[in-house]
Every structure is written in structure tokens, then in C-alpha cells.
Write a protein that binds this DNA or RNA. Structure first.
Lengths: 203, 203, 203, 203
DNA sequence: GATGAATGAGCTTTCATTCAT
DNA sequence: AATGAATGAAAGCTCATTCAT
């Protein structure tokens, strides 16, 4: 018997839609597609989400919350800044490898189809859980004297653009190696980019 | 007199479509929208491009060729590697600032709607002009002993992901400053990430 | 109450489309035409048939089944071969007179627009119910010693070509008399053409 | 240099259109298709025929004239009625085998798409050359005492329906043999159907 | 005679959403 | 909660025909 709660069903719908949106694209996935994949009726789906756009918005919030939570765990450790970067890169790539739909959704649905998120996700409010944790990581690195105190967005853009770019290349099957292969190189590159000056001279 | 050639008209169509696709999205821009913006008939548009997808593909080739050409000019100078990075970042951001549709198209149409480019733009063949120049820049930096000889994609992902990420944030109106403001910071970050080890110690 | 079942509605659509296709032609009848004649929406029509071609194919199967059934009744009687021919000619002409759309559809839609039936009605599979009964009639006539044992297609072509030709002339309003007028002549002609040699001399 | 006359060019266009219409269907063949196949421009084609429908009508007249001429030659011989039937069947099947487009056009374009010929080919005026010769053949057969004096259309329908039906089956690749194989059988069937009673008893 | 770019109405098909049951 | 038939606006695309050159 064990009835499924309305909240659980919402999540089940979101996960299925996430899978389809990220794989087939937002506009090329239809509501009937989603309903059929879930074995439920179109009409009933509308009992849970009042439009296709709203469904898309709830999904990005869900992803942001999920990833933010992973980052929070890292932020709460006592690891060095460099090790934290390593962990973040790893968590991001592992997610991209094992549950590619999350990162793909972020890159290909959320970032690309702004009209869908225009009303309801203004600014970064639908991804704030995630951004906040990156911000915390960065500020702590600065406070501990490990990272240069530069403009947050210069650092954030580096971090997320870099990781996003790699996952994109991976999705394009353009990378000759698995994502895991690049973790060390990328950690190194990010760390070098953000860390405080080396004590001695500099070109 | 001075009639417009068929090739010139094709380009005029591409530029208009580029504008609309990048601003409104590929699926939310209709062929009638494009035709109306050009003051021409829907049917005639199909005398120039045999489908909406083909139009989209020709546009990305056009952009890649345009940006590749700008990069080639930089590659052909005698500037130092660091100065070249600075120029590349600047050219990219200037383009994003002055002709934002090109970069937006790249990020939001080409990267996001893979189904549109699946047949005809396999791999990176529709953006090869651009990628090739980045590759040339990188390899020359390595050859001159300025850049570490790491995996090309680790470097490419950093470069393009970073710049793309910043432009995205700019497009989201999330950046507190104009793009130009970040040029120096970003040049610095990229250079630090890619350059060879400092002669002395290093963590 | 007494709701109409989905299957019944499919048939209602087919009958209406049959009427329009046969009267106005396949390409000159539009889906909106059919929907309007049925008082339903265009979109809903596509809930029953997934394309215009599929609709056309289901109609020919329906006709073949209907006519095949009529022929089966004749084949199951104990009438003489000659009487059977008479009945078949009569049933065909009566159908052409009272429900002309069926025969017209056969002649003008199915036989003429092969591209529509190319995929899905290969060979004669969409008209097999009908062809099978003609075959049965012919083979029994041979077995009983009434008809010459000639190539099936020579006989089939005579039968169907003749009847089709007459209905065509009738449709063209070229015949000075009603179809019924010709039943006896035609029966006689067919019978003479197919029956076994007369016992005595021969031209 | 030998310039081509306007009339010759009209015929060249008709022959090419005939080929395409009969093979691809009237509605599925476009004017640009025809122009391209002829290596001429769309606009120029309209200098020869003022509409697609008019082109189609001129073609059927051309075919009717061509076939009528063949029949006239047969009618002018001194052959027996039976031999004439044999010749007519043969000429028809040979045409269907060697220049299938003519017969196919007759069956699939002219007979099927009445709306195209409604205005301009009322009744049988566009095929009168051909029909007239059949009529002459039949009346002479009657006059010579070879054929029963039955309604003309009963005889005409048999003749043309039968031959048309066989060619159709041939076009469908349903016939196990080449058309020539059936000439004798069919001649026999037609002759038996139409000839005067055998002197002695009868069924 | 010849060209082919241009028109624009109209086609088939799709799909988010609603609502009677 | 659940169903899925029904809606209808709108999409991409086609094509007979025209006309300036």
C-alpha cells in the first residue's frame, strides 16, 4: 500500500522531466512525452505543475539545492583551499559523469532558454543555493590568505565557466579522455589562477 | 541601380536571424518573425536557406569564421603570450559588448540546441575556424616556453569556458561592472593558470 | 448518455474523409476540410490518425473489407457461376450507384496516388480482403468446370478492369443509361469471356 | 544552328512533364521540377503553357492523338476483327511496356484527377481522337457481322477497362509475367465477349 | 524569348492547456 | 486525484504564378 505523498510524486515528475529536458531539449520535449514516460495522464501532470515553464523552474531550483548541498559539505570541512578546489572539481565532474542530466540541464536548459525562466527566476534566485556556496568557499579562501581578494565574479566566472566548458566538451564527445582524467590539471589551473602571488618575483 | 547580390542577401538574412535567435531564442523565433524583420516574404527566405536548421548552421559557421579571423590577426602579431591573452580577452569582450548577438548565439543557440546542429555540424566542424586559432595560440605559447605543455582541452576549456561564463553573467545583468572592467583580472587569471612554473619554489 | 466509442469515431472520420477524398480528390481535400465537415478540431483529428496518408490507408482497408464481405456472401451461396457473376456485377454497380464514394475512392484515390500508399500498402495487402474473394470465386468456377483454367490475372484484370471502367464512365456522366441498365450485357460479356469452350466448333 | 520552333519546344516540354507527372503524380510534381528537368527557367515555361492545368490538358490531348493515330492505322487494314483486336491489345501493351508514361498518364493523371480537367476537357473531348477510333473499330465489327450489336459503352468499357486494369496490375508489379505474355489470352477473352453467338446452341 | 527572385496563401502537423467525466 | 479527448493557434514549409530585368 504505502501511498506516495504528493511531494514525492512531484519529485518523481521533476526527475523524469529533468531527464527528458536535458537529453532532448526543452522545446523538443512535450508534456505528453513526460506524462507517457511516467505512465500518467497529461491532465494529472497539470495537477502538480501549473505549466511547462513552472515545471522547468522547479527543476532548476531542485538541482541548485542538490548541488549546493554537496558544496556545503565541502565548505564545512577543514580541508585546505587547494584541496577544496579539488573536491569541488571532482564533485562536479562526478555528477556530470554519473547523473549527467543535472549538469546538462543547467547548461542547456537553464542557461540557454532564458525566456522560460524570465518570470520566476529573475537574477540568480533559482540557483542561489549553489552560488551561495561558491561564494562562501571563495570568501573563506580569501580570509585564510590563500586566494587573492579579487572581484567575486571574476573568480566565479572562472570556476563555473571552466567546469561548464569541460562538461560541455565532454557532452560533445570531443574530449579524448574521461572527465576524471582532467581533474588534477584543472584543479591546478584554477588554483594557480586564484591563489595569492608567489612570494618572490613575477614576470 | 547597384543591385544586391544573392550572396549579400544571404548574409543580410543571416545577420537578422542571428539577432533574433540570440535575443529571443531559436525556438521562440519563427521564420515569419525573421521574414517580417527583413521586409521579405516567408517563401522567399526559403530560396536562400532550405530550412530553419540550415540557416542556424550557416550562422554559426559565419560567426566562427568572423571570430577566427580576429584571432588570426592576433596570432600573426609579435606580441608576448601574455599580451596575446589580453588581446583575445579584449576582442571577445568587445565583441560581446558591441555585437552581443554573436557571442550570445554561440552560447545560447549553438551550445544549447544540439539537435539543431546534430546533422551538419558534427564534432566541431562548424566552429573549426575559431577553435583552430585558439589551438594555434596555445601551441605557440608552449613552443615559445611561455605556457605549460598540458592537455589542449584543459586549456581550451579554461579559456572558452571562462570567457563564455563571464559573458553569460554579463548577459544576465548580474555583473556589477561593464565587461571591460574585468579584462585585466581575467587576463591575469588565465595567464597564471596556463603559464610555466615560476623559476623558484612552488607549492 | 450513450457515448460514442473511440473506434466508432474513427469510423465516422473515415466515412467522412472517404466522401471528401473521392469527390474532391486526395490532394485537393485538406485536413481542415475534413475536420470542418465533422464539426471537430483539426488537432483532434490527429488523435485518431497520425497523418493524412495513414487516414487514406485505413480507408482503403475499410473499403476492401466491406466489399470483400459482400463478395464472401455471394461465394457462400449455391448459385451457378453465371448467376454469381451476375450478382457480383450487380453488387458492384449497386455500390457504385448508392455509395459511389467507395468505388470512386478505389479508382481515383487508391489506384491513382500510389505515393500515398507506397509505405504501408505494399503489393495488394490493403485490398487483400477483396482480391481474395475474387480469387475464390474464380477458382471455384474453374473447379466446377464452368470457367476456363486460365491465368488468374487475365481473368482478374478483365473482371475488375471492366467493372471499374464502367463505373468510371458512369462517373464521367458519359453513359446514356443508369449503371443497372448494363448489368445483363456485362454479365453476358464476362461470362462469355471466361467460360469453357462451347462443345461444338469454334470460330 | 537549326533553331527549334516554338511548337517543337512545346512538345519537348509536354514529353518531359508527361514523364514526371506519370511517374511522380500530378500534385507531387512541381513546375520547378519540370523546368529543372528541361534545363529551362520556371518563368519561361509559362511562356508556353499558361498554367499547370493547361499543360496537363494539352498532354492528354497529345496522348489521345498519338494513340488514336496508331488505332487508325489498324482500322484502315483489311485484317479480320479478331486480328484487329489482337493488334489493338498488342499496340496498347507495347506502348505500356516501352513508353509506360503515356498509359500511366492516362490512368493515373487523367482518370484520377478530374478537377484538373473539369474545365477544358468536358466529357471526353480531350480523348476523342482515341475514343473515336475504338468506336470505328467496334461499328465495323458489327457491320461485318462479327460482333454483336450491343450498347457501345458496354463494349468500350470492357475493352478499355480490361486493358487499363492489366496495365495497372503490371505497374503494381503484381503480374508474374511480362505484359506480352497475356496478349493472346486477353485477345481471346475480348473476342469471346463481343463476338456474335455461335451458330449452334449456347449455354 | 528567357530568367529566377519574389510573393503569399495555404498546406500538414504539433502541442500546451483545458475540462467533462 | 486521475483521465485523455478536445481545442485552436501557430509553426515550418511549399509552390503556382508573376514580373522586373
Amino acid at each position: 500500500m504505502a501511498r506516495i505523498s504528493k511531494e514525492e510524486k512531484k519529485i518523481a515528475i521533476m526527475l523524469q522531466a529533468l531527464k527528458l529536458f536535458s537529453k532532448e531539449g526543452f522545446y523538443t520535449t512535450t508534456i505528453p512525452d513526460i506524462a507517457k514516460a511516467l505512465g500518467m495522464s497529461v491532465g494529472n501532470l497539470y495537477n502538480y505543475f501549473k505549466s511547462k515553464d513552472m515545471l522547468a523552474q522547479e527543476i532548476i531550483k531542485y538541482i541548485s539545492s542538490y548541488l549546493g548541498n554537496e558544496l556545503r559539505k565541502i565548505n564545512e570541512t577543514n580541508l585546505t583551499t587547494r584541496e577544496k578546489i579539488h573536491r569541488i572539481v571532482r564533485i562536479y565532474f562526478e555528477t556530470a559523469q554519473n547523473e549527467p542530466e543535472m549538469i546538462e540541464y543547467f547548461l542547456r536548459v537553464y542557461l540557454a532558454n532564458r525566456e522560460v525562466f524570465k518570470e520566476g527566476c529573475e537574477g540568480m534566485i533559482c540557483v542561489s543555493d549553489f552560488v551561495t556556496e561558491i561564494m562562501i568557499f571563495f570568501e573563506e579562501g580569501v580570509r585564510k590568505g590563500d586566494l587573492r581578494d579579487q572581484d567575486f565574479f571574476s573568480a566565479f566566472g572562472l570556476f563555473m565557466g571552466y567546469l561548464g566548458g569541460m562538461v560541455f566538451l565532454h557532452g560533445e564527445k570531443v574530449l579524448p579522455e574521461a572527465l576524471a582524467f582532467y581533474i588534477d590539471d584543472i584543479t591546478e589551473n584554477i588554483y594557480r589562477a586564484l591563489k595569492v602571488e608567489d612570494k618572490v618575483h613575477e614576470d
